[in-house]
């Protein structure tokens, strides 16, 4: 039994109300979230660090991490810890594709190019030190060079640490308001098109 005195809303009014509701909801909840898992990996020395997280910063704990080379062969696998992190020694100087499989059908991957795996392979670094130890006096300059290389790498790792942290944190942001409003625009436009073609059909 609906009282007659209730004002009947037109479609424009309903649209405006829902749009306002959506905007109010958006501004009230500052952070957006959805079901998607992210992977980020970076190199420090001869180790690769992997981090899995959901938009909004929640960690992907106890998730399977698999590492593949450029030929698609699996090199190693492991599980993320409570902080959603996993680390491993660089297995080969090759493009490494890191695949993270979280629970409930969430999966994503991240590729580290061979060129980003540091200037020296761990094995070659060792070989240089051994050769330099064997004939120490004549190759004094080579010793310095290789040591210098290691020192530069270490210093760079240290200096780049805040930058890497910054990148890790910015990547945790979910979709922005621009994208969301744009998406709503797409929907309205799409259904506008449907109406346009339907009305054309009817006129015929």
């Amino acid at each position: 039994m609906l009282p007659v005195s209730y004002p009947r809303l037109t479609w424009t009014a309903t649209l405006v109300i829902s749009a306002l509701g959506i905007i109010a909801f958006l501004t009230l909840s500052t952070r957006v979230y959805a079901h998607k898992v992210n992977v980020f990996a970076w190199v420090e020395g001869d180790m690769v660090f992997v981090e899995g997280y959901y938009p909004g910063g929640k960690k992907a704990q106890n998730s399977l991490v698999e590492v593949y080379n450029s030929r698609g062969e699996k090199l190693l696998e492991g599980k993320t810890n409570k902080k959603g992190e996993f680390s491993f020694k660089i297995p080969a100087k090759d493009d490494l594709r890191i695949v993270l499989t979280a629970s409930m059908g969430h999966k994503n991957d991240f590729t580290i190019a061979a060129g980003d795996l540091g200037g020296l392979e761990p094995s070659s670094k060792e070989s240089i030190t051994t050769t330099t130890k064997a004939d120490a006096p004549p190759s004094a300059t080579t010793v310095d060079m290789s040591r210098l290389q290691v020192m530069i790498d270490e210093a760079l790792d240290r200096k780049l640490d805040p930058v890497i942290k910054l990148i890790r944190n910015t990547r945790k942001d979910g979709p922005g308001v621009t994208e969301i409003v744009g998406g709503i625009g797409y929907i309205m436009g799409l259904f506008g098109l449907v109406m346009y073609f339907k009305s054309k059909q009817e006129r015929k």
Binding site: L15, I22, F25, V32, H35, I184, I187, F191, M195, E202
Partner: peptide, 28 residues
């Protein structure tokens, strides 16, 4: 034809609803 606008509005609501995180206890 009558139904198209309401489909559009609810599509938009569905599209946005999945993006909005509602904090609830320790997770969301």
């Amino acid at each position: 034809n009558e139904k198209i606008p309401r489909v559009a509005v609810l599509t938009a609501a569905f599209f946005v609803a999945s993006l909005i995180r509602v904090p609830l206890g320790p997770s969301s």
